[in-house]
Structure formats: C-alpha cells, structure tokens
C-alpha cells in the first residue's frame, strides 16, 4: 500500500507530461512560478519579479530555495550576496524598486572624511593648493583635469595611471561611477531593470573597477618617482600662471621626466 502511494507522483508525472499543455503547465510551476506576478507586491516578491527578467540564474536559485522551504531572510541574503558579487551594491532588497543601484567612487574634496581616508594623497593635492578644511582654489579643478588629460596622451603609457589618478580626483574620467559621489548620484534618475540597461550598468562597473586599479597604480608611481612629483608641481605652476592671465595653455609644451627603467606602472611589484 505504501509503495503504491509512493509510486503515485511518478505515475502522475508520466501522464501529465504526455500532454503538451499539462507538461507546459508543470514546467511553468516548476521553473517560473512568478510568471504572472506584477511588481506591486512586497519588497521580496517585487525583487524576485525584477530579477526574473534580468538574472534568471539568481531567480532560479531563489525559487529552488523557496521550494526547499528556506526562510525569506536566507534567500534575501543570497540575493544581496549575488548582486554584490556582480558589483551591484545592494544591502536590502527594498532598494531594487528604485532602479539599478550603482557604486559611487567619486571624490568630494570638500569632505574632510576624504582626507582622513586618503592621507597619502595630501602631498599631491597640496600641489594644487588643496588641503582639508580650506576653500578649493579657483583653477584647481581645471588644472587637475587638464593635466590628467595631458598625462593620458603621453607616449609613455606608464604615465596614464597618473593621468587617471588626477582625472579621478577632479571628477573628469567620463565614468559616472568614478566621477560622482553617492550624494550627487542620488540626484540622477537610476537605470531601469531592463536587460539592456543592466548590461550598461555592469559595463560601467567593470570599467570603473579597472580605472580604480589604474588610480592605485598612478598613486604608487607618484610616490616612487620624486622627480615626477617635482615636475608635476612645476607644470601646475605654469598652467596656473597662464590661467590667471586668462590665457590658454598648450599642454603639448609641458615636459615630463623620463621614468626609471623597469617601472611597470602597475600596482604589482617591479622586482
């Protein structure tokens, strides 16, 4: 009797699956039970409906966990963990309903907290007349951006990380994740959860992470090359003089010292 009862699910499955319509129905219940759900539910179900469209693998995992009777809190942790692993900063699912969350690596030079987090950048910023709790000089941003662009165009590619360092400090990389702080980013409309905009967001995050690696490399290069720091100071002064006179300065005339041989321009050891 017991074995007969245990055989029932298999018997039922065999007969259900013989009919295309029933088979399709079973497939939907198994793999996509939220197929008709809308985004007006609670945070958890809204998040699942959102992820269903753009990250089927994560959605599948959540459905499996639900079927396995795991708690909503456990599944929420899994969802946040998976999204963070991809670079999307999500602490709570409630934020998904606003749009695609993006990290913000931007610098606020008026925030004293920045200098506490990056004391090693103080000597570099001092060359531009920037220090904690002081008014940022009028031409500092333009000089930083101009020099960043100029360094990026140097034939020696090892200068590029220093260029990225300046472009990051003065919000001129062209990547919003690099150029905006969370406060500024919050003023922009967030990207929508469509496959196309998710691809754009992940591309931006990937690019920003690569650029931040260049920024670190640029910082290492500056610290290890006092001659470069000295030349940078001289070039800042030249640029500042021209800007104060209201003149345009041809950055092609700026001179940069030859870098020591063997320096890779990366954060890896040069040994």
């Amino acid at each position: 009797m017991k074995s007969d009862l245990l055989a029932w699910p298999t018997f039922l499955a065999q007969h259900l699956h013989a009919d295309p319509l029933f088979c399709l129905t079973n497939t939907v219940v198994w793999l996509d039970p939220l197929w008709s759900a809308d985004e007006d539910g609670d945070d958890f179900s809204t998040a699942l409906v959102t992820l269903r469209r753009v990250f089927p693998a994560i959605y599948t995992q959540a459905i499996e966990m639900l079927r396995d009777q795991q708690s909503v809190a456990t599944i929420e942790n899994m969802l946040c963990g998976e999204l963070n692993r991809m670079g999307l900063p999500v602490d709570e699912l409630v934020y998904l309903s606003y749009g695609i969350p993006l990290p913000a690596y931007g610098v606020d030079l008026t925030d004293s907290g920045f200098y506490e987090e990056h004391p090693d950048l103080l000597p570099l910023l001092a060359l531009f007349g920037i220090a904690p709790d002081t008014v940022i000089p009028e031409h500092a941003y333009l000089m930083g951006q101009t020099l960043g662009d100029a360094l990026g165009q140097q034939p020696d590619g090892r200068y590029q990380p220093v260029g990225w360092l300046l472009l990051w400090l003065f919000a001129w990389t062209g990547n919003s994740i690099m150029d905006l702080t969370y406060e500024y980013m919050a003023e922009y409309e967030m990207l929508a959860w469509t496959p196309e905009e998710v691809a754009v967001a992940l591309d931006m995050i990937h690019q920003a992470d690569e650029l931040m690696a260049h920024v670190s490399a640029g910082q290492a290069l500056l610290l290890s090359q006092p001659a470069l720091m000295k030349t940078l100071a001289q070039n800042i002064r030249r640029l500042e003089t021209a800007l104060k006179k209201g003149q345009k300065y041809d950055t092609g005339r700026l001179e940069w010292p030859p870098l020591a041989d063997g320096f890779t321009g990366t954060t890896e050891s040069d040994a």
């Binding site: 295309p20 497939t27 198994w30 197929w35 089927p56 693998a57 599948t60 499996e64």
Partner: peptide, 30 residues
C-alpha cells in the same frame, strides 16, 4: 528545454540538475 527536462526526469519538480542547464531553461521559458 524545461519540458524536455521534466519529461526525462519523470518527476513533478526535478532536482539535482546542473545550474547552467536550469538557467538556460528558465531564461527560455521567461
């Protein structure tokens, strides 16, 4: 693909399938 997997498993809710296969099946179904 989900229907094929279902038929070959002879279960109502198959388990133990490779994650990539499941992902492909869900993406196709969605």
């Amino acid at each position: 693909l989900g229907m094929t997997l279902l038929r070959s498993s002879q279960q109502l809710f198959p388990t133990g399938l490779p994650r990539n296969t499941l992902r492909e099946a869900v993406a196709e179904l969605v």
